[in-house]
């Protein structure tokens, strides 16, 4: 076990060093007008994190993202368990969900904006739209693959639909559902940020968008860096949990 851990640690370090190297090389190639060096970006990011206004944007984004994720997870789980359990509905609806999953949802932003107005609700809606479908799709497949003997045992015990979902389907399908959650997490984050870029007056996406408008390279680099850092560390943690859940079954 410790050998495997050593290898993955070595790989992680190699990856990070490699990325920083590519970044630095790109900086030498592109120059000061286009980007900042890794060192300057970290320094500016630290300075930015010392200001109050950054944290206002940050918490605004976190609030929007958390709400969007909660909506995406609850709707996705509900739809997924229903369509996975009820075969006919599943067969009717699944191809449509796949089709919706494949559409470039970014084109829907004007509609979301018209329906919700600029502000919190629009970015929450945008985030939730991005995250809900993958969670539903993964849950459908997970529930479908639950061993039939478990479901039959549940029926013998005369479980109601809610009890069946809570005590049989959900625990049995947990590892796959978690994979869906992991994918949904990333997409909800992207969705919320995109929503903020186009339809908000606060939040990190808005900060990025105004910086793009003003060509403020320091802010662009620092915000992108912090976003990537947050996203990468959370999704690495989720990936580790995902692997552990899959190994246990």
């Amino acid at each position: 076990m410790s050998g495997a851990k050593g290898v993955s640690l070595r790989n992680a370090i190699a990856l990070i060093v490699g990325l920083i190297l590519v970044w630095q090389l790109l900086f030498w190639f592109a120059g000061d007008i286009a980007m900042r060096s890794p060192w300057d970006t970290v320094r500016y990011a630290r300075r930015m994190m010392g200001t109050d206004s950054f944290w206002i944007h940050f918490w605004e984004s976190v609030r929007a993202f958390a709400t969007a994720l909660a909506i995406a997870v609850s709707v996705g789980l509900f739809v997924g368990i229903w369509l996975g359990f009820h075969r006919l509905s599943g067969r009717v609806m699944e191809p449509m969900l796949v089709a919706i999953y494949s559409i470039p949802k970014i084109t829907l932003y004007p509609i979301v904006l018209l329906a919700f107005g600029i502000g919190m609700s629009a970015k929450i809606a945008f985030g939730a739209i991005h995250g809900v479908i993958p969670i539903a799709l993964f849950t459908i497949n997970a529930v479908r693959n639950v061993r039939i003997v478990l479901i039959k045992t549940g029926r013998v015990h005369k479980l109601t639909m809610t009890e069946m979902a809570r005590w049989v389907l959900f625990p049995a399908a947990m590892p796959e559902i978690f994979t869906g959650f992991r994918v949904g997490f990333s997409l909800t984050l992207i969705g919320t940020l995109l929503g903020e870029m186009f339809a908000a007056q606060r939040g990190l996406g808005y900060l990025l968008m105004t910086a793009i408008g003003l060509h403020n390279v320091d802010v662009i680099m620092a915000v992108t860096f912090l976003l990537v850092l947050c996203a990468a560390s959370v999704s690495t943690a989720l990936l580790a949990i995902d692997h552990r859940l899959h190994r246990r079954v």
Binding site: N11, A30, S186, I190, V228, T236, L239
Partner: peptide
């Protein structure tokens, strides 16, 4: 194998990265 194991975490987290953030940089380049 070693290269793939190194790149795997990058692939797994890649879609959590807001790629549009790099757009201004690309416009300049």
């Amino acid at each position: 194998r070693a290269l793939r194991e190194t790149l795997d975490p990058l692939f797994a987290t890649y879609y959590a990265i807001p790629v549009f953030g790099f757009y201004p940089l690309l416009i300049i380049l």
